[in-house]
Design a protein around this nucleic acid. Sequence first.
DNA 1: TCAAAAGTGTTCGGTTTACACCCATGG
DNA 2: CCATGGGTGTAAACCGAACACTTTTGA
Lengths: 244, 244
Amino acid sequence: MNAQAPDGYDPRAFAPFAVTVDLAVFTLRADRLQVLLVRRGEEPYKDRWALPGGFVLPRESADRAARRELAEETGLSEATAAHLHLEQLRTYSDPDRDPRMRVVSVAYTALGPDLPEPRGGGDAADAAWLPYGTHGPLAFDHDVILADARDRVGARLEYTCLATAFCPPEFTLGELRRVYETVWGVELDRPNFRRKVLATPGFVRPVEGPPRLTGGRGKPAALYRAGGATALHPPLLRPEGRDV
Amino acid sequence: MNAQAPDGYDPRAFAPFAVTVDLAVFTLRADRLQVLLVRRGEEPYKDRWALPGGFVLPRESADRAARRELAEETGLSEATAAHLHLEQLRTYSDPDRDPRMRVVSVAYTALGPDLPEPRGGGDAADAAWLPYGTHGPLAFDHDVILADARDRVGARLEYTCLATAFCPPEFTLGELRRVYETVWGVELDRPNFRRKVLATPGFVRPVEGPPRLTGGRGKPAALYRAGGATALHPPLLRPEGRDV
DNA sequence: TCAAAAGTGTTCGGTTTACACCCATGG
DNA sequence: CCATGGGTGTAAACCGAACACTTTTGA
């Protein structure tokens, strides 16, 4: 957007695009990485799974649109949705990605702890959590978007505090470790993981009060909250080779 | 983009957006990080510096538009511009970012070795390389975009092979090290840097033939080319605290 | 002969890794 | 009392920072 712009600025002349947001919403349930998908009720790609999303409104930023759609389509309360971690992924703009018209889509990644079943709000014909990889081919270019989002989540666990976004407000170090293990598909050494996390300033902060609670059997674990930090230094690298 | 879409699909009804690309083009000249800026010839922000960029054409992806604008506005040959490293940064969509109309901009970061003076192609009133930080406030939200781009470049040096994009096809390890030192604003230990780089598989590949060439005074250095790798494992972390 | 930059070697100290061991709870 | 997960300790291996030293060029 610069000097290139012809004069006049007739919006209809220079506004041939629709802009949408697509959301790759991840959660951890049953020790698996799961994605929120909606089943399309109309052509094209009728009955295929697709990422939730929708049009950006005329007076709305893409960030706000993503937040709004998140609340509408997950069926969560606005307040809950407002607390979910939401992050712009990238923009997909292939001219033929939607056969109906020219649509540019800004994709977002959202993360949350074990979220409730969808449905309730929104007008999606059907919506569900599906374990990543168990859904068939998605509508439009959503397979690419979803794969990009998954890669990004895995990579960002290494050098940001993102993992806490998969946990409830108060969590044990075991839960935090299970986030890494589930997303990366590896096993981490419990003692070393604990030391590493506690040694990283601002990653987690112990909960005062009764320093104990349990999640099932075994010794009750101490509770922590997310610390203020956003970046992780030094990073928590995954074992062996990388993928990216 | 999904079930939300009302039926009918009258492009004029759902296409109130213009889409542009903005480019943050960096190069290293005179041991400084420099940015390519164009001076605006029209209102708004007349006479202010701005990032080069332009409208995405109706049948063009944002990636292609960025590549095209890169060639047009840098005055480089299409062939040269085609080899520059170009990467999507993020999308800026504040409803009021352009006072004239609703414009969503996909920002890109481009990197190149000591590039020639701009001008020649394009219709920008004026274009120049300016050391990062020496330009006044830019037009629109370009200050934010440029700062984001600069942060990203610094961060990506840590865990990708991006630094080679700042070097000519064949380069010495001294030149590569100077990339890190200039962008990060630190001094690195030469012997350790050398070992680190050579120990990273796929980062650089020695040039066969006469393994020598000089850049000035001092012992002639061996030449290298970029290796095939794109990610860096383990990462090359910058000293002391981080900024992000 | 000196300054500058490349390249090699070595030491030292902290971090990571791997694993042994004890603690607290549910069944 | 056993299985399960939490938490502490520790020794070896590894890695990175720091720095001494040699080599090869231009001036």
